[in-house]
Nucleic acid binder design. Structure first.
Lengths: 145, 145
DNA sequence: CTGTATCCTTAGGGATACTG
DNA sequence: CAGTATCCCTAAGGATACAG
């Protein structure tokens, strides 16, 4: 293990990650995509935290530009758009899971289903992989591979 | 694995995590504490991203209030304060590591030492634990246990 | 030097109206 | 309903002066 305090990171990965994750709205959108089957605009808009529509539109557009999600037309309803995580976006599943794990450990008011957190802790990588695979299939079904 | 889309999280862990992590400055401060041996005010202030001093003071104070870091007096220089992660703060090491992992995978400009990322991927939990243990010892040495 | 407080501008974001 | 655009105000934060 390289010594901490060394001159790691000229192209700093935390700074890069912060451009995506260092925004509360983005984190909530990612959560909804990963764990709440949010696919449509309204799913995010009515997601409990009452994100205002201009912010939502801004973040969705930005995330699309970053290649973290893709928009596809809903075949059932042409005016509607389906939002899906790309592989790059699904790569953030382990990050969100580790946040959940930490909150579960340190926040009294957080209530995560016990089997969820147990399964994660038993095998974090495997658990993340199964979620990612499930999301991948969802995306493929919508033609957003 | 519990079905995605279920009514997980009334006390939502991602929302809770977002209060801490959903801010770029906080992420950078955590990085400096974890990987750059930042202990003093100036270490953060001169950390490359040129955080302005009012923002820095604000974040440090807030993180202290959250119990994520503690301030102790520097025995060598009374006017000086040492900032150290608490156990709660060290609990965020896996989160930051997963962010680094993701950035390494998806950002061209990120350059993480190969052995660092290799060690992490070989055994994420063990790697995180060794960093946490090292930080714990640092804190203990400063009397910030 | 370490750390705090003030000024002031800009942009983030809430409410809401509007379009298809 | 899905999604966009405008208004307007608050607050984040950069520059900088200040205090110990």
């Amino acid at each position: 293990m390289p010594k901490r305090g060394s001159d790691l990171w000229h192209g700093c990965p935390v700074r890069f990650g912060a451009t995506v994750l260092g925004d509360p709205w983005t984190l909530l959108i990612l959560r909804d995509l990963m764990f709440r089957d949010a696919r449509h605009y309204g799913d995010f808009a009515r997601a409990g935290e009452r994100i205002s529509t201009n912010i939502l539109a801004d973040r969705l557009q930005w995330l699309e530009g970053e290649g973290i999600l893709v928009k596809t037309r809903d075949p059932d309803w042409a005016v509607r758009v389906i939002y899906r995580l790309t592989e790059k976006g699904r790569g953030l599943v382990p990050v969100i899971l580790s946040i959940i794990d930490w909150s579960e450990a340190w926040d009294d008011k957080t209530e995560v289903p016990a089997d969820f957190i147990a399964a994660y802790r038993a095998d974090p990588a495997g658990f993340a992989a199964s979620i990612q695979e499930s999301l991948r299939q969802d995306a493929a079904r919508d033609g957003a591979a």
